[in-house]
Simulated scan of single mutants.
Amino acid sequence: MANKTLGLEKHLYDYLLSVSLREPEVLSKLRQETAQHPMAAMQIAPEQGQFMALLVKLIGAKKTLDIGVFTGYSSLVVALALPPDGKVIACDVDEEPTSIARRYWQQAGVANKIDLHIAPALETLEKLLAAGEAETFDFAFIDADKSNYDNYYELALQLVRRGGLIAIDNVLWSGQVADPQVQDNRTKKIRALNQKLHQDQRVTISMLPIADGLTLAMKN
């Protein structure tokens, strides 16, 4: 995985950030603290977060899913882009990094917009469906354990409304998806979902080489 856009030389990547990134101070501080975490590579890139915020505003999202929270950057960047009555349902199983997330959500004044569920995300998503929340979400971001990517996608597709957007992270997987010599389970799961999405007529898709690869799937 990568926490900056793949395939750009450092001087060009730095230029890209210098002329495009408008990162609020609270997000910058969160990113700097996360850089000291042993799993810092799980952090999304700041240009990806800004792009997601733009998408959320473009589609007029009010209700979103964040599947895989870590230290909370994706939840926070989306919450900041939502209107005052917006809501993020955030899913994670780990109390340690999400305690960092909670702290920054409070600092940013958006904790009231984020409903964190500490439980296996599949359970949380299935409970949302059982509660009658199918087709009520505008946007979903999938960035959790790769072994369940396809399951998360299928449940998100039920929860998102027509015209809603699912964003799937790490679809280029540091380039390993294109290397036939790499046959570990996580890489194979991502490859399989990429192939499935290419043929899935339920959605309109675009795979973008931003950060570690981001697929956008709009529900038809």
Rank of each mutant, 00 (worst) to 15 (best):
L12T: 09
L172K: 07
Y15S: 13
V88A: 14
N151Y: 11
Q181D: 11
T71R: 00
G163I: 11
W173I: 00
E123S: 11
E126D: 10
A61I: 01
S28I: 02
H117M: 05
L80C: 12
Y152S: 01
K219V: 15
Q201I: 09
N185M: 08
L155M: 09
S99M: 10
R103N: 02
V110T: 11
K146C: 06
A53C: 08
F51S: 00
D200V: 09
E47D: 07
A101Y: 06
L159E: 00
R22H: 14
S18A: 15
T204R: 00
A45Q: 06
V69K: 03
V160H: 08
L216P: 00
C91I: 12
Y153I: 13
I205C: 06
A156D: 04
R161V: 13
S75E: 04
E95A: 15
L82V: 05
P46W: 05
T187V: 11
E25N: 06
A140T: 03
F51H: 04
D169Y: 00
V160Y: 05
A90R: 01
K146R: 08
L157W: 01
D169C: 01
G7T: 07
A61N: 07
Q181E: 15
A144D: 13
T204P: 00
V171M: 12
E25W: 01
G72Q: 00
I142R: 09
S28M: 09
Q181T: 14
L58G: 06
A101G: 09
E33A: 03
D66L: 05
Y153G: 03
I89T: 14
M207D: 01
A90Y: 04
L122T: 13
I114R: 02
N3C: 10
G68T: 01
K113A: 13
D115T: 08
I205R: 04
A144I: 12
S28A: 14
A144T: 12
Q183L: 13
S99T: 12
G68R: 03
T64V: 14
I114N: 02
S206E: 05
P120A: 06
L172N: 10
M39N: 05
L80V: 09
E133K: 15
N3K: 09
E154R: 06
K189W: 02
A81P: 02
D200Y: 06
H11K: 08
A40N: 07
L30A: 05
Y13N: 11
Y152D: 02
V26W: 05
K146Q: 02
Q36V: 03
I59S: 04
V160K: 04
A2N: 06
A156T: 02
S74N: 13
V78C: 12
Y73T: 06
D115H: 11
E135W: 00
K29R: 14
A178Q: 12
H37D: 12
S147Q: 15
T215Y: 02
G86R: 08
A119S: 14
L82G: 04
